[in-house]
Design a protein around this nucleic acid. Sequence first.
DNA 1: GAGAATGAAAG
DNA 2: CTTTCATTCTC
Length: 507
Amino acid sequence: MITQGPSPEDDYGLEAIAQHNAIHSTEQFPPYEEDAKGLGIYSGSLFHDDDQIYVHNPPTPRSGTASEGVRTRSGRSARRTDSPFSTSKSRVSKSPATRSKKEKKPSKLDKSKTPKLTAPLSILTKDMDVPLKDMDAWVHRPAETRRKEVEKRNGYVTRPMNSFMLYRSCYAERTKQWCLQNNHQVVSSVSGESWPMEPEEVRNQFNEWAKIERANHAAAHPEYKFSPSKASNKRKKGDFSDDEDDASELDGDPDGEYRGGSRTVRQKRLADNAAAVAYLPSNVGFESHPYYGQQYEQPQYAYTSEPGRPLPSNAGYDGSGLVFNPQTSIYVHATMNPHPQYNYMPAQDVRTGGMRVSTPSSMNGHHQSLGGYGLPGNISTDDLFASNSRTGTPSVQAQYNSYGQPVYPQYHSYTPQPAYQSLPQHQQQQMYEHAQYLQQASQPQAAIDPALASVFEESGNVGGGREQSHFEDAMGDLAGGGEYAGMEYFDEPTSPNGWRRPELGGQ
DNA sequence: GAGAATGAAAG
DNA sequence: CTTTCATTCTC
């Protein structure tokens, strides 16, 4: 991260926006050298929230000596996203003394392949024709489908994807297109960089999906238990006990010889999943159910999870806040918002008076409006049609996937105003400014005059004739080494995304 | 408990 | 190999 990159003088024509950012960011922050080209993500758009200004603070590996959080296997310091759904007790503190291993991994990935993003992928790729993967449909795959996948893998049960994996998968195609390469190392890298930049609502949405995915995965494979292989033998060749022990504890399934040692399915520890199974209907078999016939017609997504409030007879919920639909044997959505104070979107879809929802993902308790971020789901038809008329795209109609769920092409552009209508004046202003900055950050060219952004959009330069790749556009100063100009990183952010008030002198 | 290790996708 | 996060294993 801190690595002194080539520090090229060429700034890919991003001087304008860089200066713009610098103007805003250097006022209250010690000016870094990299600031000029730092392309501070949100630096210019100090995000106001009730008189509080938040600054996105990417991790600073060097400075974060106190407690910089988790480190990945590769030694990189993991960003603190503070997943609201993390069941594990914050694995936050990382003792500074424990740098026994490699403090930092050089990362063989070529630096030139790790572009510095100016905005999250949800913004950068919002106008691309490449459709996003319908993660909502994915996480709602019926158990039957899931079991077929297992059979296809010769009985191997994979782990459910976590929020980031879902995110990465969702944007993989667009990311590849955006970077103009098929290297998934790059996709992962870019996704990893984009993930902490994503707005709260976006990450919350993927956290929701991850939660749903986990629940449906557990429902489809009640006997599954994650059991990582003890193949730490690779490293500690010393304590090479044996992996035959694992074989002994196997339930004796015939199909277990494929992947070395890794037994992911154990029948013995059903108790561990008892909590998850407890609220399941007795007929967990559910092979004969037509999955999504009426699932989304039913109003169970309007339920709240207030403890004392009974749920309708056709729904139940567990401690995780997911609603289980017995008719489909599928978990639908979470009903609780663990961090409501971080939502700057209204609790209801103000565009529709909270009445209409387009996809189940918007049926959760959050009622987030993510259409602007190009996420599948949460896109009202109003947005689609409005965008349709704006962009001139041929009829944008909801199509349905094999699960009977609507899948919307992502033709719409970010039109934040409609979502703000019913908000208080000051909130409208906040969100508008925030959106404007994101919009601007996604289009460095438009930094000359943000008003021209719409012209850019409608000029139809998205799909075909782009002479220069986004990849290069967004490649910032590599010398920055991952630091955003004038930013401070707090090890204990006041919000899950690392946003925090800079306060006065701060640090 | 903390920290290390694994594995989810994918080409 | 590459990413973050969830989970389990190991001291």
